[in-house]
């Protein structure tokens, strides 16, 4: 490399360095500002956490109050949905009927299906039911094995007395049949 070009490069680097030095000085100023802010925000973070906790406790009380007010234990019926593995069925929607009346329906997003797939359980319906005989029917829609559209139903009879009823709609993979199985399980309270 010639002396002239070395000189050019050196001058160029000085120029670039000056620009970048300016930028770095500015960044230095900014870091001091943020360090100061960080201390102030510590107490704000504590306040936020404290408030979050308070609101969570309040939310808990409100949820309990709501349930006692709207769904007393003696008339309550709850329906949950779970999925075991779900390799053979890609869930799109669920509809729940009690005595041929639609009481709950859900179109599932990818996130919801993923949450179910990973072991989450969805509270699908919470309502009231009079004493006597009833019929709970669930319709499942989605994509089944070989990418075919799949629609199935499961049904259970309810003999409602004075205690609450809890049902779990279960989508289970049958490794024997290589297809999904839809069940309704009654939980003993």
């Amino acid at each position: 490399m010639s002396a002239a070009s070395v000189s050019v490069i050196n001058r160029s680097r000085q120029f670039a360095s000056a620009i970048l030095l300016g930028a770095s000085l500015l960044l230095g100023t900014s870091s001091a500002t943020f360090a100061q802010d960080s201390e102030n925000s510590q107490s704000v973070s504590d306040q936020i956490e404290d408030l979050k906790k308070q609101v969570l406790s309040l939310n808990r009380d409100l949820l309990i109050l709501e349930e006692e007010l709207l769904y007393p234990a003696n008339s309550q019926v709850a329906v949950y949905l779970s999925m075991d593995v779900g390799e053979f069925f890609e869930l799109d929607a669920v509809k729940v009927h009690i005595d041929d009346k639609l009481v709950a329906s859900e179109l599932y997003t990818e996130h919801q299906v993923d949450a179910l797939f990973r072991g989450g359980v969805q509270r699908l319906y919470l309502g009231n039911l009079k004493t006597g005989d009833h019929r709970l029917t669930a319709f499942f829609t989605g994509i089944g094995p070989q990418g075919r559209e799949y629609k199935r139903a499961a049904e259970v009879s309810i003999n409602k007395e004075t205690e609450g009823k809890v049902y779990e709609l279960k989508i289970v993979d049958s490794t024997v049949k290589l297809q999904p199985v839809f069940e309704i399980k009654e939980w003993q309270l």
Binding site: Y80, S82, H111, D114, A115, L116, R118, G119, G120, V121, Q122, R123
Partner: peptide
């Protein structure tokens, strides 16, 4: 299960 459902 419901907790996990929300959490996930």
């Amino acid at each position: 299960g419901v907790t996990l459902y929300h959490y996930f």
